[in-house]
């Protein structure tokens, strides 16, 4: 029992240390982002468009495929319940609200955390253990500006965009199923959807995606930057990065949903 308490205490202290390091990394990232944005030469060198392509465009097929299937699945499930009471005309609104407020942003963030966040940790962690980061420091090149900032800006732009596209795709999946299999008239489906959706539903998703982007980049890069040792440690850090960002995304999502609609 005493041992258990000891473990818990140590884990808590590690958690607090990680949190404070993450804060400093975040502060430095924001600071260096301004340096980058205001310096034309450094901006060109950072390859922001390459990052957006790697993070955003290349995640697009996966995100869209998952989102459209999610839209279909939700429509199927909701129609089971509403069939009993004959309330098929509620389907479009229900699906749209659930997707825009909750499922779209959450699912997109989780996919990106697994695909992109893990890659950040693995890439930066490998650079750390092969002394590439120390080499950057020795050349008086700020590693945060060189490695973190373009990923930060890239994801801060890409994730909200991906989320919006995923939202539309999921609603479209629901629309296809509803109009072809449930016999809801296409024009009614579209009108119902637009009647129910509010502006808050849309922008809360953008805000959520922005917050998730910060979490994925900070956790992914931080885990990579603190790796010590060899390949095994890089693997462990990558796993830890996905686990902790997944957890943080779900916890913060709950809070934000509460804040927007509670």
């Amino acid at each position: 029992m005493k041992n258990f308490a000891g473990h818990l205490g140590r884990a808590f202290i590690t958690f607090l240390q990680d949190l404070s390091s993450l804060y400093y990394l975040f502060r430095e990232t924001v600071l260096q982002s301004f340096v980058l944005i205001t310096d034309r030469k450094k901006r060109r060198q950072a390859g922001l468009l390459t990052q957006i392509d790697e993070i955003g465009t290349q995640s697009l097929p996966l995100v869209l495929a998952v989102a459209s299937l999610l839209g279909v699945a939700m429509t199927v499930l909701i129609s089971f319940q509403l069939k009993e009471v004959g309330g098929y005309n509620y389907i479009p609104g229900l699906v749209a609200v659930a997707i825009f407020r909750e499922m779209g942003p959450l699912l997109t963030a989780l996919i990106v955390a697994g695909r992109v966040g893990a890659a950040f940790t693995a890439r930066i962690g490998t650079m750390k253990v092969s002394e590439e980061i120390l080499a950057l420091e020795t050349m008086a090149i700020n590693p945060v500006r060189f490695l973190v900032v373009q990923r930060f800006l890239g994801l801060l732009f890409s994730l909200p965009a991906l989320t919006m596209l995923a939202n539309f795709m999921a609603v479209f999946g629901g629309f296809l199923f509803g109009s072809t299999r449930l016999g809801i008239r296409p024009d009614t489906y579209v009108r119902e959807t637009l009647d129910v959706l509010t502006f808050t539903d849309v922008y809360s998703g953008v805000v959520k995606a922005g917050v998730f982007a910060v979490i994925i980049v900070m956790v992914g890069c931080y885990r990579g930057l603190v790796v010590e040792g060899g390949a095994e440690e890089v693997g462990r850090a990558t796993m830890l990065s996905v686990v902790s960002s997944t957890l943080a995304i779900i916890v913060l999502d709950t809070f934000m949903t509460g804040a927007f609609y509670g």
């Binding site: 650079m127 092969s130 002394e131 590439e132 120390l134 080499a135 420091e137 020795t138 008086a140």
Partner: peptide, 20 residues
């Protein structure tokens, strides 16, 4: 604060540490 010093030195790392 170390930057002026670092611009005056070079370092050859054991494994090279080139950016891959």
């Amino acid at each position: 604060g170390l930057d002026p010093f670092r611009k005056k030195i070079g370092m050859l790392f054991q494994q090279g540490a080139l950016l891959n």
